[in-house]
Amino acid sequence: MLLAIDIGNSNIAFGIYSDRWKRHWRLNTVADKTADEYEVLFRSLLNSVQQDPAEISQVVVSSVVPPLTSTFVSMIRSVFSVEPLIVNGQTNTGIKVSIDNPLEIGSDLLANAVAGYHKYQDKCIVVDFGTALSITIVGVGGVLLGGSIAPGLKTSMKALTSNTAQLPFVQLEVPNSAIGKNTVHAIQSGMVLGYIGLVESLIKRIKAELGEDAKVIATGGLSEVIAPHTQEFDALEPWHTLEGLRLIAEKNAN
């Protein structure tokens, strides 16, 4: 049985796989939480679904929060008594990375590329709606060609409201009209509809540079907010990164 963990700047997503995904969870990331504190959380969540930690024989981890990487290694050793696979630019993923410095690529982007190519066996674009908006482009033959990064939707909202005296933080919902009749709707128009425009524009430019069409996958915590309001996505896969980690773990099982 496999446990896959994706440690992001805002959320920690993890799931248990055995022939199929049995369960997924998403926690808020707290960078200064200790291994003991995360151990309590994990044991409690596993206990809530009657999952014996001793049945977990393999753990794979992606982390873009360096202080938490060692914390989770300690927690995993204590709870599951296994040595986790920590995915990085040197891990055997089965795909070629064609960027200036392959070692600097985020482990979450590697996992997204692996899962995207596995799903379509062809060119694909993975749009990950997290703390940052990260777009990963996979070309013919499963070659990771590069990507695009912008502030995430929540990050942009925090920047707007924390740097303006009279603008409130609002729910990230799609308004009925682009013409806001009050402050809340005006912010939702600019932030949410404007963000959709940003994503659509990037996808179209990437496809133009590829010179041909490509399948587009939406993933990440806010993908379910954005994806239903644009025609650019071929698939909505909220747990796509965990699937990529599973495939990487499978490739490195020995």
Rank of each mutant, 00 (worst) to 15 (best):
Leu3His: 07
Ile5Glu: 10
Asp6Val: 13
Ser10Pro: 07
Ile12Glu: 03
Gly15Phe: 10
Asp19Ser: 15
Arg23Leu: 07
His24Ser: 04
Thr29Gln: 09
Val30Met: 13
Ala35Met: 10
Glu37Phe: 01
Arg43Thr: 09
Gln50Glu: 12
Glu55Phe: 15
Glu55Pro: 11
Ile56Ser: 02
Gln58His: 14
Val59Ser: 00
Ser62Glu: 01
Thr69Ala: 01
Ser74Gly: 07
Ser74Asp: 14
Val82Glu: 06
Pro84Glu: 06
Thr93Ile: 14
Ile95Gly: 09
Val97Leu: 08
Val97Asp: 11
Ser98Tyr: 10
Ile99Asp: 00
Asn101Lys: 15
Ile105Tyr: 00
Leu109Lys: 15
Asn112Gln: 07
Ala113Trp: 06
Val114Trp: 07
Lys119Pro: 00
Lys119Arg: 14
Asp122Glu: 13
Lys123Gln: 13
Asp128Pro: 03
Phe129Ala: 06
Val138Trp: 09
Val140Pro: 07
Gly142Trp: 03
Leu153Trp: 00
Met157Lys: 11
Leu160Tyr: 07
Thr164Cys: 08
Gln166Glu: 13
Pro175Gly: 00
Ile179Asp: 00
Gly180Lys: 06
Thr183Leu: 00
Val184Ala: 09
His185Met: 01
Gln188Ile: 01
Ser189Glu: 03
Leu193Lys: 01
Gly194Pro: 10
Gly194Leu: 11
Val199Ser: 05
Ile217Arg: 01
Ile226Tyr: 04
Ile226Leu: 02
Asp234Lys: 01
Ala235His: 09
Leu236Val: 09
Leu242Cys: 10
Leu245Gln: 05
Lys251Cys: 07
Asn254Asp: 03
